[in-house]
Amino acid sequence: MATLIIPTPLRKFTDGKSVFEASASDVRGLLNALSTSHEGIQKHLFDDAGELRSFIRVYVGDEDINELEGADTKIEDRDEVSIIPAIAGGSK
């Protein structure tokens, strides 16, 4: 099973747990498994069109999936996948 690291602000949807484990062949499948088992988290990960929200990044190991194949990036058992909120902003 692959391991998914939940960022602190989304742990209120996972009963405080920082780790979620599931079998999936790609990143999208792993995130869908998380959304199915934890109500309320999906809207923070995906937009209405089912695409990953622009302020959510996902890393497989230390690699950003935007530099791989996006949500279609293949994963294997024992891969560590991290959900990373984009932290940015500014005054104007």
Partner: peptide
């Protein structure tokens, strides 16, 4: 810009 990417909690 702050609001657009803000996370809950």
């Amino acid at each position: 810009h702050d609001l657009a990417v803000a996370m809950p909690w």
